[in-house]
Design a protein around this nucleic acid. Structure first.
Lengths: 226, 226
DNA sequence: GAGTACGAAATCGTATACGAAAACTATGAC
DNA sequence: GTCATAGTTTTCGTATACGATTTCGTACTC
């Protein structure tokens, strides 16, 4: 998973800051001071600025004119927007990819899902989340539309930045998630029509959102995993 | 439609270059030389560079390291990706917005559609295209998910940059388009369920893509309007 | 005449520098 | 003690400058 050759310093800065956000070193609200980051990375402020603007476009960072950049927060409204959008683009990506998924890929996905089941027993939420992403990545491997795939990845990145700081399971949701994965695989195997697959994939995502919204208000600022 | 206060010079450069692309002054393949644009706009290269990178993120510009930026071309594959993605996000945006559209907005949309019909008779494709965008903008006015709306606008911008250089009608498609608009309005008025509306909105977009794909190969590089 | 090698010109990438705006702090009035 | 205000500090925004890379043109060889 290590990044290949770091081309420009701007690229390097982008990858570095993004990694720190996604892994949680920079938590939401964290103030990103250009000069400070530049010094840390051993480059000047210009490429850092460029990197930050790129992250802003992806929604990971909020930039305010003449004030500065902060890591985007976990505003519940934003979470809702992101999950709803993900539901739609993941649904489409799954439906488009389904006809191109061969039995080998299905087997791999199933293996990943089995590992996820294990994680539930040993309670390893971090690994569970990573595997969850792997599962869908296998399905999307041959997605015929890279634009849609890109939108999926953007959504994932946003969620990652949220998750790193306020990780929490919605009770029982993870178990359901694993079952839904299996159901999805069976739909794909049986060459179900595109609409059916799309609806299933959508609901797989939006069910998590619903679970979140159903949480007692006191927990409203915590965020579920899948 | 004139832009309000131009904040930073970077913003100014962004708006200026984007406008030139969308309106067709810079046609696909056009070489965007930083220094030249900077001089034109009376600013230095740094904000121009930032603007170009932003346009790159939106897909309007292609940037190659140590070589420079060019206006994105009309690669039929890219067109397909964009239209397919638009079909999905417009479908979702329409379905989400439908319950929030009041009768006043419906009336406005209908008026716009009537104007579009006029444009067909007087053969005014440029105005037709603008009105087409207006029509959907009315529907999306109260879209409850700004992320999805943003995706729609990005798609439109991409199409605009294509259209400005190779505008052409697919025979008969525009007439159908107007009819589909009316059908869509009736679905919304009758409070049809979300799925039905979504499917209709999707097909409205993908029908244009299909019409394009059905064109004789000799015309394959020309692109339809709606 | 075609192809290659070398040099000049163009263009990009980034460091540095400085003016401008905002945020912070300390001082004083009420 | 609280609020307003002026001065200081921090940080951003952009201009300028220069080294690095690519591209283009020319001359030379085969």
């Amino acid at each position: 998973m290590t990044e290949a050759a770091v081309g420009s310093k701007s690229e390097q800065a982008y990858a570095a800051v993004k990694a720190r956000i996604v892994e949680g070193t920079y938590t939401p609200g964290y103030r990103l001071v250009l000069a400070k980051i530049a010094e840390d990375l051993g480059v000047s402020v210009v490429p850092v600025r460029e990197a930050i603007r790129r992250l802003e476009a992806e929604g990971l960072v909020k930039f305010e004119r003449n004030v500065g950049a902060t890591v985007s927060g976990i505003d519940p409204t934003e979470y809702l927007y992101t999950m709803q959008t993900l539901s739609i683009v993941e649904g489409a990506a799954t439906a488009l990819s389904a006809p191109l998924i061969d039995s080998v890929a299905i087997a791999r996905a199933r293996a990943v899902n089995a590992e996820m089941r294990d994680c539930l027993e040993h309670f390893d939420p971090v690994r569970f989340t990573a595997l969850n992403q792997d599962f869908h990545s296998v399905l999307f491997e041959h997605c015929p539309n890279p634009h849609i795939l890109d939108l999926v990845h953007r959504g994932w990145n946003r969620l990652a930045s949220i998750r790193a700081s306020t990780f929490r399971f919605v009770p029982g949701r993870a178990q359901e998630s694993v079952k839904e994965h299996e159901a999805l695989l069976q739909l794909i195997e049986s060459n179900a029509d595109a609409d059916t697959i799309e609806q299933a994939a959508r609901r797989h995502r939006s069910a998590t959102l619903d679970a979140y919204l159903a949480l007692p208000q006191s927990n409203a600022e915590s965020v579920s995993a899948h």
